[in-house]
Design a protein around this nucleic acid. Sequence first.
DNA 1: CATTTAATGTTAACATTGTCAACATAATTT
DNA 2: AAATTATGTTGACAATGTTAACATTAAATG
Lengths: 202, 202
Amino acid sequence: MNVKKNSTYHHGNLKEALLSTALQMVEEEGLDAITLREITQRLGTSRSAVYRHFESKEDLIKGVIKQGYAQMDELFTPIFRDQSRSVEERFERMSRAYLEFAIEHPNLYRLLFGERFREEREGICDYCEETQATGLYALIGLLLEAQEGEIVAKVDPMIQAATIWASVHGLASLLIDGHLMMSDNLEEIYRHIYISLLKGLR
Amino acid sequence: MNVKKNSTYHHGNLKEALLSTALQMVEEEGLDAITLREITQRLGTSRSAVYRHFESKEDLIKGVIKQGYAQMDELFTPIFRDQSRSVEERFERMSRAYLEFAIEHPNLYRLLFGERFREEREGICDYCEETQATGLYALIGLLLEAQEGEIVAKVDPMIQAATIWASVHGLASLLIDGHLMMSDNLEEIYRHIYISLLKGLR
DNA sequence: CATTTAATGTTAACATTGTCAACATAATTT
DNA sequence: AAATTATGTTGACAATGTTAACATTAAATG
């Protein structure tokens, strides 16, 4: 009955197409707005095709989350590992990159670090170890280096990492959720937070 | 046809009952889980009765948000205004109370300071001025006092307030959303963040 | 007090969404 | 070539927010 699409009744790589379309739609409209029907419609397939590759909508979203973590990982790892820069520089570039990522991808950021899927976090914890935890461990590594250089106090780096993460994540969240006006003095606020953080950790 | 409920075909104060039931259900199950049908069912009324008091589900949720802000306001104002205590004491009690509120009412906290309803924030901004802004202004007042006492640096208190809020909100969010394990060393983490914050603001 | 009007509540129906079962078609294996 | 598996489609269902038409009570009005 279909004249044009005869080439691919089987899409070929529908699973990846679903993932990237879902990711794109999450970024565009946010998690709440996305719909299995619209995702499949964009791909020219039928609604139920999803269920050949994912158990449910939630399962698809979990895939998107994995993609998101991978994306962040790809972005941050080089910054963490850039041995040509001082600890302070790496730290500064990292916190800045984190904030910029949240601002540029607010919907994705909310999905990755928001409320939903925290019970299911176990399910993707293999990935947590590779990304989220890696991120934390990398930060801890950086802190150990900073402790050696007498830049920060020699206390449990896990706690220092939590302190930093809370600060940066808090600023990012307040900004993208509209509680702090993302106005002209954003740079000023960021710098104050960053400086205070360093000072406080010393 | 109804034998028992003949006393009140008209509920009497359905609007408030809807609000408090919705609030209760939000606290119990989170925003996503609540349903107009279940709310009305709990009250023994019909689904559509909601629409005599609220334009939509969103409108009802906005009412819940107002209630939530009022609740926080009631909790924090006495702490802010307790002139029998030092600035440091008031600050410590306030940040602690904020964190405890988030932990005790995670679903409500997410509703108040999360993603959704940020566009509609204008619609309840009369209340923002009375609560959220009041909260921020109270914090700023506290900071001005602290600046007088040479406890914190004499810079724009709005920026200092943002720094504090980011820290505390960030910790609260990471905790209730399951990104930091709410484990044994929570008190230790909190204290480190609080001390670092004070040190950084000095 | 009687009547009219407004307020409040109910029922039936609809569109949207995620999901599943039954069927269809293509790819792969035997 | 036949059989089996993988993948895609269609039709149906239940749950949900919403609206329209109707019912009942409260309030206002004479």
